[in-house]
Amino acid sequence: MAATDGDRNAETGQLEFSLEVPFPSVREATVALRSLAPDGEPRRGGISKQLAVTGSTLSVRWSADEARILRVSVSSFLDHLALVAETMEMFGPPVAQ
């Protein structure tokens, strides 16, 4: 798993953070994306999060007004990711489509 520092974007003034998570295959990366994507951020405004799959890598990009909000969102995302990964380990691999 690779992550960038939470830097402030000079143009937008927003704090940004990104994460790249490798999976064994495109299929598994897609399962993770579709499990993690439906629930939006609990608070309205102040933060946005984008998920995408490129090859077998799940990438996530955050953009936030405040470090505190960013930290909460990233930390809760990591908890969720760990649960999804553990579920895939115990109850996977995905059946053939």
Binding site: V31, A32, R34, S35, L36, P38, D39, H80, L83, V84, T87, M88, F91, G92, P93, P94, V95, Q97
Partner: peptide, 14 residues
């Protein structure tokens, strides 16, 4: 927490 697991197994099991 519970929805995450439900979504994941639904996809894994098709």
């Amino acid at each position: 927490t519970v929805a995450l697991v439900a979504r994941t197994v639904a996809q894994l099991w098709g």
